[in-house]
Design a protein around this nucleic acid. Structure first.
Ligand code: MN
Ligand code: MN
Ligand code: ZN
Ligand code: ZN
Lengths: 156, 156
DNA sequence: CTCCTATTGGTAATGGTTGTCATTAACAAA
DNA sequence: TTTGTTAATGACAACCATTACCAATAGGAG
């Protein structure tokens, strides 16, 4: 899905420029892929998707740009225990909003959930404050994942 | 610290036998290392520590046994984003009891904390119940980690 | 349009982890 | 204690996600 409408500069252009980065085909393509999926993609997933439209974009470039995009917080990197990292657009850009993950230990299916966020927010607020003070940490982030076995995998 | 007191079968003997596993030097040595540290060790850390007492125990054996020990839930495997897994005795065997982790993104220092567990337990209970029902997951486990920058790394 | 330099793509290297297989040793049974 | 079965080991090679390297390319400011 490269720039379907051909309407000039993309939304991410400003963000890039203001961070001192150039707007390039690979970057645009990678973000396009992430915009148009609900899934959590690996570097290779993204490489393959990008490859369909720009067969000359290399896997190395995908890795490099994923790292850069994580740094400027346009995307987030996750480890679900599968042996490779997965990526998704960060809360601000994704439309999904802030959410956590429920992971099947058998098939690695990942469910986004944002239920129970009231409880979570309370819990996180108080815990982060307490931990920051007690352990002199400047806390910037948290990771909450539940693991289990999905319905499909239970019936086997 | 191999079997300091020489008083025959170790505490883990029973657990092993009842699971159909044999009691071997490498297994005993690995558990000894994990018993005598407060840190979160990598496979290689453990290999090196074991190596001092049993120089002929191989790294492969360490990996194999770590996997086995995770399976029978005597130890727990963690990923703190460092590119290699870390291991510690599981709650039941460690004396630390159930706890979560605070991780420095700069130096990968890991702090065990069990403060604020009342809030956590409430939050986890209700969330797990809700998620189990809504998403038909049989939830067995959770991962809660806070990330930030430790005091030492802040002053640089 | 030009120039500077960030970025790229191909390829080799890295490093944690796993697979293979002949040899060894735990331990149940005799 | 001796024996037999087979789980477990150790050395080594292979795997695979990720990184390093470097010469060639292409953003985009001026
Ligand atoms: Mn998600
Ligand atoms: Mn711990
Ligand atoms: Zn599943
Ligand atoms: Zn630190």
């Amino acid at each position: 899905m490269p720039n379907q409408d051909g309407t000039g500069p993309r939304w991410m252009h400003g963000k890039f420029k203001c961070c001192g980065y150039r707007m390039t085909k690979p970057r645009e393509a990678i973000l396009d892929v992430l915009e148009n999926t609900q899934e959590h993609l690996s570097a290779e997933d993204i490489y393959l998707a990008v490859h369909k439209f720009y067969p000359n974009i290399g896997l190395t470039t995908v890795y490099r740009n994923l790292e850069m995009l994580v740094n400027i917080e346009m995307i987030v990197k996750f480890d679900f225990g599968e042996g490779k990292s997965k990526y998704e657009l960060s809360d601000h850009y994704s439309g999904k909003g802030h959410h956590h993950h429920l992971v099947c230990k058998e098939c690695y299916k990942v469910v986004d959930y944002s239920d129970f966020m009231k409880d979570e927010v309370n819990f996180l607020k108080s815990t982060e404050d307490g931990l920051s003070k007690k352990y002199k940490f400047n806390i910037t982030d948290h990771l909450i994942q539940f693991f289990g076995v999905c319905e499909k995998c239970s019936n086997k």
